[in-house]
Nucleic acid binder design. Structure first.
Lengths: 203, 203
DNA sequence: GCATGTTTAGACCATCAGTCTAACTAACAG
DNA sequence: CTGTTAGTTAGACTGATGGTCTAAACATGC
């Protein structure tokens, strides 16, 4: 958590810091990113930086929080659902909203992808931000269980972990193979990937 | 790849280096591990170390290769299978052999678990060792496709990536919740987890 | 003008992975 | 025994890293 001071900064300076950090983290991953370089490029002194953030990991969490908070808001939740069909339709809608959000600003999307990849090599301290993803997933799955769309024979935590792992694997594969994918093969693939989640979750 | 010189070293010195490295990497992960400390604890000079290995990542790959090569050998392959039932029985047998191997030396098993976790935060260069897992998985899935046990409507690479991600998620969850699991609930859980792979792969 | 609390600058520190050279050892030759 | 060469080792050294610390600058209230 960043010191509250940081949030009170003039928007310009705050954005300069966030931009500089996002660029570096997205490009090199957490471990390889140079904090000194981030500081330099943000045009801020070291003293000031350590006045706003505890350490490198703290800045990292802040960047992730700022950039993904908007996405989470944009995606929203499943809404009110009462049947498995409604539940899965709601999930499809969520995925659709996420796609729209990302497609709206491809550059930002690319940087977010970089941030996601950098998450993998983040140290334990900085990985608490993963809870930001795990908790909503858990709640979504519990909603699915309530309407009979999601199996209840496995611990929901385990199911959430598997869903997230699957999602990340798909995302990584898509990112790596994006260029070599025929555009017309994309839509059916998307449907099949959603089907994978249903296979996993069906009671 | 380590310089071949390393493999010619007296077994004692070689093991000292591998043990020191494994302990440090397993405990702190790749990025946080101190190469200087590994060198010091192995009782070797820096010059010697850089005479045997290109760099930290090279030593890391060597450790992974040594420790997991044995496991891969112990697990073997599915063998000759002609029907989906035989294929899945073969997979079960592989899992069983892996469990036996790991159970035979719990300490070693724990260190291997640490190494697996450390893989996540390895830099791109050192992550080539992941191919060591991806390639056999791919082949296994292709065998499954040949006998009609595994779906062919998705790229096999993607399927392999998903299988590995699922496996890692399960492993992580099991490691975290091992203590709080009732012993009698373990066997059915194991069956259900195998079932998850079948759900994912069924044509 | 003075005092108080907040903010900034950047010199400084230990540690990091990695380099470099001089010395050491072994083997063989004359 | 001496010279020469190749393989091996020791450890001082380098530049960069993340992080600390102190003194100055700034603002605010009196």
């Amino acid at each position: 958590m960043p010191r509250p001071r940081f949030e009170k900064l003039d928007a310009k300076k705050r954005e300069a810091i966030l931009d500089s950090a996002e660029e570096e983290f997205a490009a090199k991953g957490f471990a390889q990113a140079s904090y000194n370089l981030i500081i330099e490029r943000a045009g801020v002194s070291k003293g000031a930086m350590y006045y706003y953030f505890d350490d490198k990991a703290d800045l990292y969490s802040t960047v992730i929080g700022h950039r993904f908070g908007d996405l989470v808001n944009a995606v929203g939740d499943v809404g009110e659902v009462n049947t498995p069909e409604e539940f899965w339709a709601g999930c499809n809608a969520m995925v659709g909203r996420a796609m729209v959000y990302i497609a709206a600003d491809p550059e930002q999307g690319e940087r977010m992808r970089g941030l996601v990849r950098s998450l993998a090599e983040a140290p334990p301290g900085a990985r608490e931000v993963l809870a930001m993803a795990r908790e909503p997933t858990r709640q979504l799955l519990e909603t699915g269980q309530d309407v009979g769309a999601v199996r209840s024979d496995l611990p929901v935590d385990l199911l959430a972990a598997m869903v997230l792992a699957l999602g990340e694997a798909m995302d990584t594969w898509l990112a790596e193979n994006w260029a070599s994918l025929p555009p017309e093969g994309l839509a059916p693939l998307e449907g099949e990937l959603m089907g994978v989640f249903r296979r996993l979750c069906d009671p």
